[in-house]
């Protein structure tokens, strides 16, 4: 039987993408201490989250916790919107106001879509991001400088920065509710490995690539595609810009949808599936009332 509202991969993608978007928006310069601080901050979080999945067959979070998480998800969506505005400014977009208007219109449209659409989009975005990251290091080995890893910096700053970017913890109960514990454990392990393994590796790669460029303002990630061109003809800067904005829009939508109360969600689904004549959207967890006699 197909699980309602997204499979495990899509659910995991929905946990990973907000952190990835926040990573794109963070303007802290890369250093080995930054990476180490990140790892140290993720370890206790991962341990606590994985402990939740140890005993029960199915994850069943209490309603008061879900209510708190819903409110938190709405606040997290607001915070991601602030980051989105900052990203527009950092990437020197010519029309930041219009970009925010487009985001607002997109949210008005996408929040009313079934949750399944956000899950599917998250899965696709994760694959697109993985493909982009595979291309990133290919042009770089010749210009790596290992000694840059010893650039003096504060581990504590990296630790607290990672704690500040831990908002997706609020999404875990909402996304993993009623999931088999074994499957949830796999998804959460992937999420923890992404935060505590993959992101620090990207930070280390960036540190070795742009050694000493410590005081430059702006997002260090977007220096990497420019610093490591595959060839003079193929550049990935444009891909990463589009990807970052798409990732932001999707994450804000997903947080807003996750933050909606269950009754409101059901009403939206009934409205989109059956309220509009000719609607192609199908809900997975509501019966098809048109077929009932």
């Amino acid at each position: 039987m197909k699980p309602p509202n997204g499979n495990l991969l899509q659910r995991t993608a929905l946990l990973i993408l907000p952190r990835l978007f926040a990573f794109f928006c963070c303007d802290a310069p890369y250093s080995a201490a930054y990476a180490l601080g990140t790892v140290l901050a993720v370890i206790p979080q991962a341990a606590a989250v994985l402990l939740l999945t140890r005993r029960k067959n199915t994850l069943d979070f209490p309603p008061p916790l879900l209510k708190i998480c819903r409110i938190g998800a709405q606040l997290y969506a607001a915070w991601l919107t602030v980051l989105f505005r900052g990203l527009c400014r950092d990437l020197l977009l010519p029309h930041c106001g219009l970009m925010m208007l487009l985001l607002a219109l997109m949210l008005l449209y996408t929040v009313r879509q079934p949750e399944q659409a956000a899950y599917r989009a998250a899965g696709l975005m994760l694959f697109a991001g993985a493909a982009g990251f595979l291309l990133l290091p290919l042009g770089g080995p010749g210009t790596l400088r290992g000694i840059s890893l010893f650039m003096p910096d504060s581990i504590a700053a990296g630790f607290f920065r990672e704690l500040r970017f831990s908002g997706e913890l609020l999404l875990i109960p909402l996304v993993m509710q009623k999931q088999p514990a074994k499957a949830a454990r796999r998804g959460l392990t992937a999420w923890a490995l992404f935060r505590g393994g993959f992101l620090p590796l990207v930070v280390l790669f960036g540190t070795m690539q742009n050694g000493r460029l410590f005081c430059r303002k702006g997002n260090p990630f977007f220096l990497l595609p420019a610093r490591t061109p595959l060839t003079s003809a193929i550049r990935t800067d444009g891909f990463w810009m589009l990807y970052a904005f798409a990732c932001g829009g999707l994450c804000i939508t997903a947080c807003l949808q996750a933050g909606l109360p269950a009754v409101r969600k059901r009403n939206i689904m009934l409205h989109t599936a059956h309220g509009l004549p000719g609607s192609r959207h199908k809900s997975f967890d509501t019966p098809d009332i048109r077929r009932t006699p």
Partner: peptide, 11 residues
């Protein structure tokens, strides 16, 4: 350029 600026700001 990034090496030049990095040396000016650090090191």
């Amino acid at each position: 350029a990034d090496t030049v600026l990095g040396d000016l700001k650090s090191g």
